Amino acid sequence: DARERVVIDTGDGAAVAFLGDPERALFAALAVFDNAGQLPVRMGINLGPVHVSRDINGQENVIGDGINVAQRIMSFAQPGQLFVSRTFYDTVQLLSGEYATLFQAVGGRTDKHARTHEVFAMNPAVRVARRAAETQRMRAVRGRAVSRAKPPPSAPATVSDAGTHFIISGATREAVESELARLAAEGAKILAAPSQVGSRWMATCENGRAAVRVHVEKLGMKTIISATTREAVEVKVKELLGFGARLDREIEQVDGVWTAVCDSPH
């Protein structure tokens, strides 16, 4: 529904304000990537307050912190990248845990106004997978047009290590279910059942090596990270370093508990 979005021509690009479901912004961005070919497109998505008004020519315009931050998030991206803000990331992962698997933390970025933004980037594998799936689909369509031969079996699903969880991605639901069943048999907890994201099937399950409760405690400017395994502490330390923290004390085992200390970012 066009009434739920406002499109603004910016000269060298466009700003689109979605006034309803935030998922529509994500779907639109993925569709742009699917159809951009080799064009050096970069995008940024934010969730925030805006005001819709009309300019002196009677054209709809959007102003407010919501769209201003979206532009700044986009400015941090390189051609071929989709960046989203912390507010957008937090919201869509509440709508569906599967959305969290599409992004990875980039860290803090500071704009020209000295304002720091927490940024998340779409995992490059997502775009590659969507392109591969679309290419396979088009080949299958062309193949059916010239031959009635039985199509070759689909490739097995791929498993990507995303720290605390695994992302299982495949061209078919059956391939993803097969790989998910294998991981579940090894003790992994299923976090999100197979579902279709564009032309690709995806699911997530717990990474048993990293699925350990991590305790984070702030004492002044220090942050103490502790867990029962070194791997779990390493994952959390890496995340904090990405947001500007500095490792103050290396990871070490104290009384059976693995611990590290970081200086909190200013």
Rank of each mutant, 00 (worst) to 15 (best):
A132W: 00
A162E: 14
Q104V: 10
A133Q: 06
T164L: 05
A132H: 05
D161T: 06
R115G: 05
L95T: 06
T158P: 00
Q93P: 02
V119E: 03
Y99T: 11
L95D: 01
P156I: 07
A157L: 07
P152Y: 15
H113M: 07
R115F: 03
H117W: 08
V159A: 03
D111H: 05
E118G: 09
G163C: 04
S96T: 04
P153F: 08
R86N: 14
D111E: 12
G163N: 05
S85G: 15
T110R: 08
N123R: 09
F88V: 14
R130G: 10
Q136M: 07
T116H: 01
Q136W: 00
K112F: 15
Q104F: 04
A121G: 12
A114T: 06
F103D: 03
N123D: 15
G163T: 02
H117P: 03
M122P: 05
M138R: 15
Q81E: 15
D90P: 01
S154R: 06
R109G: 10
G107V: 14
R144S: 10
H113Y: 14
Q81R: 14
F88C: 14
T135N: 11
E118D: 13
A149W: 04
T158Q: 13
P151Q: 10
V159C: 03
R131Q: 12
T158S: 10
V159L: 06
A114N: 13
L102P: 04
V141I: 14
Q81S: 11
T101G: 15
Q93Y: 00
R142S: 05
H113S: 07
A129Y: 00
L94G: 02
V106L: 15
V128Y: 02
P156K: 08
V92N: 02
F88H: 09
R144V: 03
R115H: 10
R148K: 15
S147N: 11
F88A: 11
A149D: 12
A155V: 06
V141Q: 12
V146D: 02
F83H: 15
S85I: 14
F120K: 09
S96K: 02
E98I: 15
A157I: 04
T110G: 05
S147T: 13
F120I: 14
R131W: 00
V159T: 09
N123A: 09
A133L: 04
H165T: 10
R109K: 13
R148I: 01
L102H: 04
V106S: 07
T116G: 04
R139A: 12
F83V: 13
T110I: 14
V84L: 03
F103R: 05
H117R: 04
G107N: 09
F88K: 06
G143M: 13
N123W: 03
A121P: 08
R109D: 03
Q136G: 12
P151A: 12
G108N: 07
R142F: 04
V146F: 14
D161Q: 08
A114Q: 14
R142M: 09
A105F: 06
R86V: 12
Y99V: 13
A140S: 11
V119R: 03
A132C: 03
R137W: 06
D90W: 07
R131L: 06
A129D: 13
A125W: 01
A132Q: 13
R109L: 11
A140L: 10
R115D: 12
T110F: 08
Q104S: 11
S154E: 08
A133W: 00
A125H: 09
R148H: 08
